[in-house]
Nucleic acid binder design. Sequence first.
DNA 1: TCTGGGGTCCTTCAACGT
DNA 2: TCTGACGTTGAAGGACCC
Length: 506
Amino acid sequence: MRPAPTILHLDMDAFFAAAEQATKPSLRGKPVVVGGLGPRGVVATASYEARRFGVHSAMPMAQARRLAPNAAYLVPRFSLYRSVSDRVMELLRELSPLVEPLSLDEAFVDLEAGGCAFDAAGARAAGERLRADIRAVTGLTGSVGLAGSKMIAKIASEEAKPDGLVMIAPGTERELLGPKSVRILPGVGPATGEHLRRAGMTTVADLAAAGEDELVRLLGKAHGESLYRMALGYDDRPVVAERDAKSVSVEDTFDVDLHDRVRVRTEVERLAERCVQRLRSAGRSGRTVVLKVRRYDFSTLTRSETLRGPTDDPVVVREAAARLLEAVDTTGGVRLLGVGVSGLADYTQEDLFAQAAAEKAPPAAPGPSAEAAGGLGAGKPGAGGRALVVASGGGTEAPGADGPPVGVAGAAGPGREPPTGAAVGAEGAAGPGGPGAEGGGRRWAAGQDVRHTEYGPGWVQGSGLGRVTVRFEEPGSPPGRVRTFRADDPELAPSDPLPLVPGRSS
DNA sequence: TCTGGGGTCCTTCAACGT
DNA sequence: TCTGACGTTGAAGGACCC
């Protein structure tokens, strides 16, 4: 047993909602719900005021609105949360070089590696200092858990919420965990919880008493063994600073189910393009393309295809996704579509092919093979090969004539698309229904930052019927007043989020 | 009253190579 | 040459997490 707690877990309190309240003074002390506002949206975060009405994350928005009809409902602004998160992570790194972010609002810190946890008092002091710094720099509160392991530190920060600090002395883990529900252990969700309950185990002490063999029999080797160790309070998972992503994916849930097969296909192609954009802006490529389809009855299926080598070519990914779609029955309607790429690498197969081709062959002749220059190996067997990169399964033929690529820029070389510019305003505001497809008048999303040439900075409180209502206030100001404009008022424009604490731009 | 989006890891099964 | 054992890889699905 270690003498002093060496792991710190930080969890920001109701992070998205708190950030919204900090930037919108009129919402402080009021119920705020952040999440998808469409008919199928769910709650991402509810402020503590909203939680009192029973609203919690992952709840359908429609249900939240019934429980808390007077709450403010806002769309998430990830660029704002990311900038706040970056500041918080900086503070954590001042504590120790070993910081493991779990999400925008949560992280583990290995205090031992930072040399600031020689004893319990030192660890507590570091935790309290961190909380004060976070408040000073961001205006937000975070809760801190201190313990000898990640699992216990996380449980401690949960107990510290909101705005507190809890330290668990090493050696006392088992008595702390024993009476608690199995659901507090990481990896025990609804399904495993129910499984265990049917076997007569509801508390952590029940798991410890059952023994390792019984848990392995019930849940399988990996899960059973790890759960048994956790039940004894034993968790030696290290804090890992850098983790490479293993997959990249994008998905959209549609406001109404898609029935038209052609529409389904164009949506899959759009998702493939978006996925590749994300892949490229991360500087990665991938070898396995995955198509995800959620049907009208919420049943979900995935189909995947592994290529001969990693790619970041939109044409290759798009065509693979389209092939996978061919094998899926969509009658009855499609609720969600997703395209992902896994088996990530830092290079692409095309790079190698292009390099080899450049070394030994003159440039492609004009004419039909202009298409090849556009990206595909244009049916020349043996040439390039990246047009037909199917490694197994699928019985796929060379693309040949069926799908001339549309306006494809060469994947290799300098012509890469830059990452999409910093998103302004409310990301995610435009639903899958067709961003940019608005006919007349602009679309404004609730919560979106705007600026008026006369009244200055504000945020969209609501919109509809060709009107948009804006509240003019900013982080340091008192609650502001509301004005309504025509939705296409030329004096009103989307703007970037303002810094949370005045004078501290991030 | 329904159930987002972006991930990770594990399990099972089948195919394949040695 | 046939057969079994075994490891690896890929595909699909499920559970879980924030």
